[in-house]
Design a binder for these strands. Structure first.
Length: 216
DNA sequence: ACATTAATTGTGT
DNA sequence: ACACAATTAATGT
């Protein structure tokens, strides 16, 4: 009882304009809510996906493991979004080929994937939601692809910083150079040097474990 | 308050 | 990429 009313409220707050009322009622019967804290691993490589998440609050980062065992940040999932990779897994009945880590504390609704097919057939607003989030994700992925293929690391780093600022809504990022290097699949020294350049250009201010972005 | 240590960042080769 | 120096934060005495 308690739980479902809470889910309903949260849903209405975040997905009001996106999903229609009768679908939400149906959804609530199957949904569970899960909270998570920053840096928590929500799914790892090769794990089966049992649920499809709808993000209410906070943000997630999605990583892909590259052949040499390194990791690369693919994209962020923000409130009101779902993870497009789950969609792909649901249809292909595949295991996760990405790793998802919480960027900030938050909460999400978990929908059992067994219901997906019926729901897609039955509820147009749900179908629409799935299709549009899938296509948005495609577009974003193309951006990260060009960024990898065509852009220099300094531009990538700058985009990384400004993205993070947007996600957090804070000009000051609490992160070490080492962590950034991991996420961009680079090395600490290189990141430190580029950041130093940014600082000389007056674009950022560097402190221990903190970076203040001054323009974007 | 001071010394010690660990972690992070800066720089030259 | 590596090595080392310099700086900062954390911890104990």
């Amino acid at each position: 009882m308690e739980v479902t009313t809470e889910i309903k409220q949260q849903l209405e707050e975040t997905f009001a304009g996106i999903l229609d009322a009768d679908f939400m009622e149906e959804l609530v019967k199957y949904a569970t809510i899960q909270r998570f804290k920053s840096e928590e691993e929500l799914i790892g490589y090769g794990e089966p996906m049992k649920f499809m998440p709808l993000l209410l609050d906070g943000s997630l980062k999605v990583f892909r493991e590259s052949s040499d065992g390194r990791e690369l940040l693919l994209y962020y999932v923000e409130s009101g979004d779902t993870c497009a990779m789950t969609i792909q897994c649901c249809f292909g009945k595949a295991l996760s080929n990405v790793r998802v880590i919480a960027e900030e504390d938050g909460a999400m609704i978990m929908l059992p994937i067994q219901q997906m097919e019926q729901w897609i057939a039955k509820y147009p607003s749900w179908r629409q939601f799935i299709l549009s989030s899938y296509s948005m994700r495609m577009t974003e992925l193309f951006d990260t692809i060009d960024s990898l293929a065509f852009k220099q690391l300094d531009q990538r780093l700058w985009e990384y910083l400004t993205d993070k600022v947007k996600i957090h809504g804070e000009l000051v990022l609490n992160i070490s150079h080492e962590k950034i290097a991991e996420e961009l699949n680079s090395s600490r020294v290189v990141i430190s040097r580029l950041l130093k350049d940014f600082e000389h250009q007056g674009k950022v201010k560097l402190m221990r474990n903190k970076i203040e972005v001054k323009e974007f």
